[in-house]
Amino acid sequence: MNRIDQLFQNKQKDILSIYFPAGYPKLEDTLPTLQLLQDKGVDLVEIGIPFSDPLADGPVIQTAAKQALDNGMTLQILFDQLKDARKSITMPLILMGYWNTVYKFGVDAFLAECQKVGIDGVILPDLPLEEYQEEYKAKFEAAGVHNVLLVTPQTTDKRLVTIEKAASGFLYMVSTASTTGGALQASKEREDYFKKIAALDIPSLIGFGIHDKVSFQHAASFSNGAIIGTAFIKALEKGNAAEFLESLQ
């Protein structure tokens, strides 16, 4: 069974997911960071594939991605680093990146590598749903890789129906209209949106703007859990990742 499905079967509340870019702050940090996350009880990890032009990301992730690229990170190196990860890492692993890097790598080759190293899902924010369904869905399913879809406060009800039908794994519920790293503003409207998505038939995690224990618990109270990216990257940069993870407990 796909590890993502297993996770949501075993745990419905307070799922903590962490995002960090591969090869950051140092090229060889990918695996040690994964180990740290597992040791600290993180439920799910999104490993960022660094890209030169990350449209949906704010300054912190942009800078981290640039650092990773300057370190020499590539998709192939990432797969090589993950070659033996499954010997010790049991958390579900998701690759998050932009479509151009995957397309250039070759979709078939990408999925074959995902299967080989034990990737459970991908998040490809700029691959349109229609193109995914027509051209790639069958391949992803055959490889047992979930394509996790995003919903946002702007997503119309009509589109939500389409997305719900097409979704697999869980829904990535974007908290606010912003790039990554913004602040989460609480409002009645926001809560209604969270509740609407949480009521759907598929699990959901809230991301964008979750940065500490308080915002995590607030978000998690409306969904199955939440995703922290920018705040964790700042901790990696400062060298206090372990402390940061402990502060979330």
Partner: peptide, 22 residues
């Protein structure tokens, strides 16, 4: 209708922009 010239074009945007572009 979907914005392609031959094989080129389309709207490869994050969901965050979907409503605007639609």
């Amino acid at each position: 209708e979907r914005g392609y010239y031959g094989e080129f074009g389309g709207a490869y945007i994050p969901e965050l922009l979907r409503k605007n572009v639609d």
